[in-house]
């Protein structure tokens, strides 16, 4: 229904290209497929729709949080093909065919991941709004680098703001999850 005036732009085949609909006109809705936490979803989106909107509003996984919505705070961090990225500045159309992991995909059934457990053990969760993004950044770090130094942890989590904890408990949680520095649970 949004096709009025829009012509497929196809340069590779050398066709004559018309672009009458571009400036300020309706944009073409696209059907994309993305695999979120192991489930494939087919979603119709306009190009301007961000991945965070699809995850939260269309698929209904609201664990991923929308906070600054301008690519700064990290609350919306999800993993695309294992890489931590900001879903608030990622166009959904760019994720066609991609594997996406959100906070809902960390636990296996009732069993929390070691990172999730460590966050609880260390009191690294207060209001919890940064937590999903923080967990995704930490998970990506440990998958790539199972024994990170404190400096590695800082670099991996510098794009995730937390106003509650002062970060100390969060660093301890990542150290605990990686089995380093003999960090023991402080909450039972």
């Amino acid at each position: 229904m949004h096709e009025t005036g829009v012509v497929m732009l196809d340069v590779s085949k050398g066709k004559d290209v018309r672009v009458g609909a571009v400036a300020g006109a309706q944009s073409r809705t696209r059907l994309i497929s993305l695999c979120v936490n192991g489930e494939w979803h087919e979603v119709a989106v306009k190009p301007r729709i961000m991945l965070v909107e699809v995850i939260r509003d269309t698929i209904g996984l609201t664990g991923t949080k929308a906070s600054c919505e301008s690519g700064i705070c990290g609350a919306c961090t999800v993993l695309i093909e294992g890489r931590p990225v900001l879903a608030c500045i990622t166009l959904a159309v760019e994720c066609d065919g991609k594997q996406i992991r959100t906070v809902e995909g960390l636990a296996e059934g009732e069993k929390l991941s070691v990172v999730q457990e460590a966050f609880l053990d260390q009191g690294a969760v207060q209001c919890g709004f940064c937590t999903p993004g923080m967990l995704m950044s930490a998970t990506a770090l440990l998958e790539r680098n199972p024994k990170p130094t404190r400096q590695d942890i800082n670099k991996a989590l510098e794009g995730n703001l937390c106003r509650c904890t002062g970060y100390n408990a969060i660093v301890d949680a990542v150290l605990q999850a990686s089995g380093q520095e003999n960090v023991k649970p402080v909450m039972k």
């Binding site: 340069v11 309706q26 301007r48 961000m50 919505e69 608030c88 159309v93």
Partner: peptide, 21 residues
């Protein structure tokens, strides 16, 4: 979120992208 519409094309090569631009 972006509050205006635009269109989107994915280029397979940089040459294609330049031609589109």
């Amino acid at each position: 979120m972006i509050l205006f519409d635009f269109d989107y094309e994915r280029a397979d090569t940089l040459e294609q992208a330049v031609a589109l631009l």
